[in-house]
């Protein structure tokens, strides 16, 4: 399991295995980069943000009490970074100059897929991301963690430090709110 592997790598890192950190990055870079992107909606910024998150992880890892909690701890660190960067960029008016056209990456065409289908998917993804971005922070975060990052209720509860029941009720409200926003697409 990802969590078990991460815990072993954390232990190895603490015992001086320098490569263990690289393997941790390899395990989580996709999740962290995509989490960062869902906040800043810009690939350059997302890369820089993801790098800063891992730099913090590297420096703070010796202080992590329980290696088995690495995943939640990483998400907490990442969310804090993302919130701070988002607010800083917002203050600078960064999002006002962004357009929908440059949100998505260049077309990633999997073999056997039609160009039309791919373009349609990417347009849908653009609209989804744009609507997500307009949502209140608390709703947006819980949707990102659950439906984009695939975290369990328990992991979300630990990451956001809210009770499990609150996670469930907030998630339902957030999903209903997104449905309402996407009504024209459905």
């Amino acid at each position: 399991m990802l969590k078990d592997e991460a815990a072993e790598l954390v232990k190895a890192f603490r015992q001086g295995d320098a490569q263990a950190f690289n393997r941790l990055v390899a395990l989580y870079q996709g999740k962290v980069y995509n989490l960062a992107y869902s906040y800043v909606k810009d690939q350059e910024e997302a890369r820089d943000l993801a790098q800063d998150i891992f730099v913090t992880v590297y420096r703070s890892l010796p202080g992590l009490k329980d290696p088995a909690k690495f995943s939640s701890w990483l998400y907490q660190t990442a969310i804090n970074h993302c919130r701070n960067r988002y607010r800083r960029l917002q203050r600078r008016g960064f999002f006002e100059t962004q357009s929908l056209d440059d949100e998505e990456s260049p077309l990633q065409l999997a073999s056997g897929e039609s160009l039309e289908k791919n373009i349609e998917e990417q347009q849908t993804a653009s609209i989804l991301r744009a609507e997500l971005a307009k949502m209140p922070e608390a709703e947006k975060e819980i949707l990102i963690l659950r439906d984009l990052q695939g975290l369990s209720y328990e992991e979300i509860s630990e990451t956001l430090q809210v009770p499990l029941g609150t996670v469930k009720s907030k998630l339902n409200r957030a999903r209903l709110a997104l449905k309402q926003r996407l009504r024209h697409l459905l």
Binding site: Q29, G30, Q43, S105, E121, L128, L143, D147, L148, L185
Partner: peptide, 11 residues
């Protein structure tokens, strides 16, 4: 729609 969004490739 949300869950089928493809993750972006890591730089």
């Amino acid at each position: 729609l949300l869950q089928e969004m493809r993750p972006l490739p890591v730089p």
